[in-house]
Design a protein around this nucleic acid. Structure first.
Length: 890
DNA sequence: TACATACAC
DNA sequence: CATGGTGTATGTA
C-alpha cells in the first residue's frame, strides 16, 4: 500500500524511548491516535508515539476527546461530589464520518497488542503498529475490527451521555452507594489465606527451546502463520505477541533484520510437562489448574506450619507471626519454583503470593520471568502498591472495559473509588460492585475444589469449531458441520455427556459472528442427533459464505448448578420435580418481596478509606432517599443479588435456621390435615421448612410430558404420585458445638457476600452467584435438568433415599483436603451414599455454598484446614435422610 | 431460552 | 500463504 514512506524501518533502539507521560495533553498527540474517539488508548501513555506515519496518511484528523484523560480526574478536587470531569463533552468526537465503512477510521484495533497485561515494555511499538496497519490494509478482518470499534465508540458515547446527565444530587447518592459497596467489600476482606498463583514463563516456547537449545538466542514463536500462541522473550523484544497473527509477527521481525523462527505446537508434550509441574505444586497444598501453564495453590497450611516452627514459641506477637509467615511463604514459593525448574529440566515459573488469587495473579506478572512477588500484608501497604497500577492488569478487565474506563478517566485502581459515582453510572450494578471490590484488593481466596464426583457433570458446555477458507457452497458447509458434529460427539462420549441444547456458531467471510441455538426435548449425544439439529439451524442461514463453523452442546444431563450443588435430578427425578414446583412459588414470592439492603450490619468498622483516597463521605446533608430514587443505572436494579437470603419466609436465613438451633418449632408448621404426615417430618427440618409449607397446596398435576420419545431419549411419563424427600439435621454429639459467634459470622456472611460475587474472568471459574437467589439456586440444584426416569426405576429411587446419612463436616473436610486428583488425601472419605451431594445440597440451602471467602475468615478457621474446610469447619451437623413420603395424585 | 458480548489462556 | 479454539459469565429481550 502506501508503505513506501514507512519502509524506514528504524532500528529498535531508535523508537524505543517511550517516556511515561500519563497525562500528556491531547493536543500533543498525533491526530491519528485520537481518531478512535473516546476509546483510543492514548491516555495511558502506552500508545505514546504510535502511528505517526499512519496519522499523516489516510487516517482522519480528529478531535481531542482523549483530553478526558487529563489530570483533573486524578486531582480529585471534585471527588466529593463525584462530579465528573467528563462534562466537557465528547460531542466533538470523531464521528463526523458517515456511518458505514468510512466511519471505520478507528485505529484502536491497532493497539490490541500493545496492551500490557504482562507485556514487555521497551519494544518498538511504533513499528509494530506500522506493520500491523500495513499488512491489514484492505483485509476483511480490518474492516470488521473497525466496525466493531465504531460500535464501541458509540456505546461509550452513550455511556458518557448518561454520566453527564447525572445531577449533582444523584452523584451524591451514587457516591454513597459506592461507599456502601466499598464498605461491603471491606467486610469481605480476609488476610487469613496465603494464595499463590504459579505461572509458567512463555510456557510453550520454553518447552520447545529446552528441547532444542539452539533456538534459545533466536526469536521463537510457537504457532503458525495464522496465529502465534506464545513467543520467547527474544521475539517479544521485536514486538511479537501471543495471539498475534504469524505473518505479521514474521514481517515485524524481518523489518528489524531478524528472522522469526516458527515452531509447531506440540500440545501433548505441554500436557505431560504440565503434569510434572502440577505434581510439584500439589505437594504444597490444594490447588487448581485449568490450563497447562498456570495454577492456583493455597499454601496456607504450609506457611503456618513453617512459621510456627520458626517461631517455636507460642507467645509471639502478632507482628512477629506475620513476619514469620511472610518469610515462610516467600521461601516456600521459592522452593516450589526451584522444584519446578528441576523437575522440568529448566522450565521457569513466576509466582505471586497474596491474600487472594486475583492479587496473586497480578503479583505473578510483576516479576516475570523467573521471579516471584509477595503482595503486602497490610491494607495500607497493599493499597499503596495496588493504587498506582493500571486496571488493565486486573483479570477481567479487557480491551472494552479498559476503554470504557479510560473514557471516564479511570485508569488506575485508586481511580475507581475516587470516581465511583461515574463508575456506578457507567456500569451495571454487579460490575460496579465487582470493580470497586477489586480496586480495593478484595477478591475470593478460595479454590473451587471438588472430589471426583461420579456421574455429576460440572462443565456447562462442550464445543467444536473450525476455521476454513471462505466457503459458500452449502453442501460443503453441511459436510463440515457433519464432521464437527461427529468429533463433538466423540468428545462428549469421553465424558458421557448428553445435552439438550445445540448451538451453531458461524462466522461469515466478513468476520461477523452469529450463534443460533435450539433446544430439544431429548438428550442429545450421538453424531446423528447433533448433526440433525445443527443442520436444521444452519439451513436457515443458507445461503451464506462462511469462514468458520462451530457446534456446541449444553444443558447437560446430570449438570451441577452455580452453587456447586450436585444435581439431584439425575438420581431423584421426583425430588427434582418436587422442588421445581417450589421454585415456581418461590419466584412468585420474590417478585413481591421488598428489597433488602446490601449493607452489612456487621461492619467490623475498619476505616474504608484507602490511602490517598478521601474518607468515604458520610456527612452529606442532602436527603439520600430523595436523591436516590431518581437514578437508575442500567435500570437493572431488579435483580439485585443483595436481597439474597434475607427475605423472611424464604426459609433460608431466618433466625430459626441458625446452625445449632436444632430444635425447630413444630407448631408453627402445622397445616392442613392431609399433609400431616409430611409436615410431621418436615417440621424437624428447619431450614427447609418453608418449602414444605409452600407445598401445602398439592402440586399441580404434572402435565403429562407427552414427549416425542425416541429410542434414545428417556421416557417421559406422567406421574401419579409424588415423592417428598424428608431429612433431618442432627447435631453430631461427638463434636463440640459451633461457637455462637462464628455462627453469627457465617450467617452474616450469607447476606454480605451475596452482594459480592461477580466472579471475574472465567478461565478459572470461581463460583459465582449468578442471577439466582439462594432460594432459587437451591431449587435449581435440585432441578437444573428435568430428566425423568422410567416408572420402573421409581422403587430404586425411593430406596436410595432411605436412611442415607452423611456427615457434613467430614465430607467437606475431605473435599477441601483433596487436590484435584487426590494424590494425598489425609482425610477419609465419608462413608455411605453420596454424601457430597447431600452436603452440597445443604450448603445450597443455607447459601453457604457461595460464601466460602467470607466464612473462611471466621474464627473457626484453623491452620489445619484449608479454605473450604474452614468454611464449614464448625459445622458438625449431620444430614439424615428418611424414608420419603409418597403422596398420591388422583 | 436465545443471542450477543466480554474475557481468559 | 493472510487474524484461533474452548469455555464461562453476564446482559438483555
Amino acid at each position: 500500500m502506501e508503505a513506501s514512506s514507512m519502509a524506514d524501518d528504524g532500528p529498535i533502539a531508535e523508537a524505543q524511548v517511550m517516556p511515561p507521560e500519563p497525562w500528556r495533553p491531547a493536543a500533543e498527540l498525533p491526530a491519528s491516535m485520537v481518531s478512535g474517539g473516546s476509546s483510543s488508548s492514548t491516555s495511558t501513555g502506552r500508545g505514546t508515539g504510535v502511528a505517526k506515519h499512519i496519522g499523516s496518511k489516510s487516517l482522519p484528523a480528529a478531535s481531542t476527546w482523549v483530553g478526558a484523560a487529563n489530570p483533573q480526574h486524578n486531582i480529585s478536587g471534585n471527588s466529593d461530589t463525584g462530579h465528573s470531569s467528563v462534562n466537557h463533552t465528547a460531542s466533538e468526537n470523531a464521528h463526523d464520518a458517515a456511518p458505514g465503512t468510512s466511519a471505520a477510521h478507528s485505529t484502536a484495533h491497532l493497539y490490541v497488542f500493545t496492551a500490557e497485561k504482562g507485556g514487555m515494555a521497551g519494544c518498538d511499538k511504533e513499528l509494530q503498529q506500522q506493520v500491523i496497519y500495513e499488512l491489514s490494509q484492505g483485509s476483511k478482518h480490518l474492516q470488521h475490527a473497525q466496525k466493531q470499534d465504531a460500535k464501541l465508540d458509540q456505546r461509550i458515547q452513550q455511556m458518557l451521555t448518561t454520566v453527564q446527565n447525572a445531577t449533582e444530587a444523584q452523584r451524591i447518592t451514587l457516591n454513597r452507594q459506592g461507599d456502601a459497596m466499598a464498605e461491603a467489600a471491606e467486610t469481605r476482606r480476609d488476610w487469613s489465606r496465603w494464595c499463590c498463583v504459579v505461572d509458567m514463563d512463555m510456557f510453550f516456547a520454553a518447552v520447545e527451546i529446552r528441547d532444542q537449545p539452539c533456538l534459545a538466542e533466536l526469536p521463537v514463536a510457537v504457532g503458525g502463520m495464522g496465529m502465534i500462541s506464545t513467543a520467547n522473550y527474544v521475539a517479544r523484544r521485536y514486538g511479537v505477541r501471543s495471539a498475534m497473527p504469524g505473518f505479521i509477527a514474521q514481517e515485524l521481525c524481518r523489518r528489524q533484520g531478524v528472522e522469526l523462527k516458527f515452531v509447531r505446537p506440540d500440545y501433548r508434550k505441554y500436557q505431560s510437562e504440565a503434569q510434572v509441574i502440577r505434581e510439584v505444586i500439589g505437594s504444597f497444598g490444594p490447588y487448581e489448574s485449568h490450563t497447562s501453564d498456570e495454577a492456583r495453590v493455597d499454601i496456607t497450611d504450609r506457611v503456618r506450619d513453617r512459621a510456627a516452627k520458626r517461631l517455636n514459641d507460642d507467645s509471639s506477637s502478632e507482628e512477629a507471626i506475620r513476619e514469620a509467615e511472610i518469610e515462610a511463604a516467600a521461601s516456600l514459593v521459592a522452593e516450589m519454583r526451584a522444584q519446578i525448574k528441576e523437575k522440568t529440566r529448566g522450565l521457569t515459573a513466576s509466582a505471586g503470593i497474596a491474600p487472594n488469587f486475583t492479587l496473586a495473579k497480578m503479583a505473578a506478572d510483576e516479576n516475570k520471568p523467573d521471579g516471584q512477588m509477595l503482595v503486602p500484608r497490610t491494607r495500607e501497604a497493599l493499597l499503596e502498591w495496588l493504587g498506582k497500577k493500571s486496571l488493565r492488569k486486573l483479570g477481567g478487565v479487557g480491551k472494552v472495559t479498559e476503554r470504557m474506563l479510560q473514557s471516564l478517566g479511570v485508569e488506575t485502581f485508586s481511580d475507581v473509588w475516587r470516581r465511583r459515582a461515574d463508575v456506578i453510572l457507567a456500569f451495571t450494578q454487579l460490575r460496579s460492585e465487582w470493580l470497586i471490590e477489586r480496586s480495593l484488593g478484595v477478591a475470593p481466596n478460595n479454590l473451587d475444589l471438588h472430589e471426583d464426583d461420579e456421574g455429576v457433570v460440572r462443565r456447562k458446555s462442550i464445543s467444536n469449531e473450525r476455521t476454513f477458507r471462505d466457503q459458500g457452497d452449502t453442501e460443503a458447509l453441511f459436510q463440515i458441520l457433519k464432521e464437527l458434529s461427529k468429533e463433538l460427539s466423540d468428545d462428549m462420549a469421553k465424558e458421557s455427556l448428553a445435552g439438550k441444547t445445540v448451538t451453531v456458531k458461524l462466522k461469515r467471510n466478513t468476520f461477523e459472528v452469529v450463534t443460533r441455538a435450539q433446544s430439544t426435548k431429548r438428550w442429545i449425544s450421538s453424531p446423528e442427533d447433533i448433526y440433525e439439529v445443527a443442520k436444521e439451524i444452519l439451513a436457515k442461514e443458507c445461503p451464506c459464505t462462511l469462514r468458520l463453523l462451530g457446534v456446541r452442546v449444553s444443558a447437560f444431563k446430570n449438570a451441577i448448578d452455580a452453587t456447586g450443588s450436585a444435581a439431584l435430578d439425575a438420581k431423584q427425578p421426583k425430588l427434582a420435580k418436587f422442588f421445581e414446583v417450589q421454585k415456581g412459588q418461590e419466584e412468585g414470592e420474590k417478585a413481591n418481596a421488598s428489597m433488602t439492603t446490601t449493607r452489612s450490619t456487621t461492619g467490623t468498622s475498619r476505616s474504608s478509606s484507602p490511602p490517598g483516597m478521601p474518607t468515604p463521605m458520610v456527612d452529606c446533608d442532602v436527603d439520600v432517599d430523595e436523591a436516590c430514587d431518581g437514578k437508575k443505572h442500567g435500570g437493572d436494579q431488579g435483580c439485585d443479588v443483595s436481597d439474597l437470603g434475607l427475605r423472611e419466609g424464604s426459609g433460608i436465613a431466618g433466625s430459626g435456621d441458625r446452625p445449632g438451633s436444632g430444635e425447630p418449632d413444630a407448631a408453627e408448621e402445622g397445616q392442613a390435615a392431609e399433609d400431616a404426615r409430611r409436615m410431621a417430618i418436615a417440621a424437624k427440618v428447619s431450614p427447609l421448612s418453608s418449602f414444605f409449607k409452600n407445598a401445602q397446596q398439592p402440586p399441580p398435576p404434572p402435565a403429562p410430558q407427552s414427549g416425542t420419545n425416541t429410542s434414545t431419549s428417556a421416557e417421559h411419563q406422567a406421574q401419579d404420585h409424588w415423592t417428598i424427600p424428608c431429612f433431618v439435621i442432627e447435631e453430631d454429639d461427638g463434636e463440640e458445638a459451633l461457637p455462637a459467634q462464628s455462627t453469627n459470622e457465617v450467617q452474616q456472611g450469607v447476606a454480605v457476600s451475596s452482594a459480592a460475587t461477580g466472579s471475574s474472568g472465567t478461565s478459572t471459574p470461581t463460583p459465582a452467584l449468578g442471577r439466582h437467589s439462594v432460594a432459587s439456586q437451591l431449587m435449581l440444584a435440585a432441578t437444573s435438568t428435568k430428566q425423568q426416569r422410567p416408572r420402573s426405576s421409581t422403587a430404586g429411587v425411593d430406596a436410595s433415599l432411605r436412611g442415607q446419612t452423611a456427615s457434613l463436616a467430614s465430607s467437606s473436610a475431605a473435599k477441601a483436603a483433596s487436590p484435584r486428583r487426590r494424590s494425598r488425601s489425609p482425610r477419609r472419605k465419608p462413608t455411605g451414599g453420596k454424601p457430597r451431594d447431600i452436603a452440597e445440597f445443604w450448603r445450597g440451602a443455607t447459601g453457604m455454598g457461595s460464601t466460602a471467602r467470607t466464612s473462611s475468615s471466621s474464627s473457626t478457621s484453623t491452620s489445619s484446614t484449608s479454605a473450604s474446610a474452614a468454611l464449614e469447619g464448625g459445622d458438625r451437623r449431620t444430614l439424615a435422610w428418611y424414608e420419603p413420603v409418597v403422596v398420591d395424585l388422583c
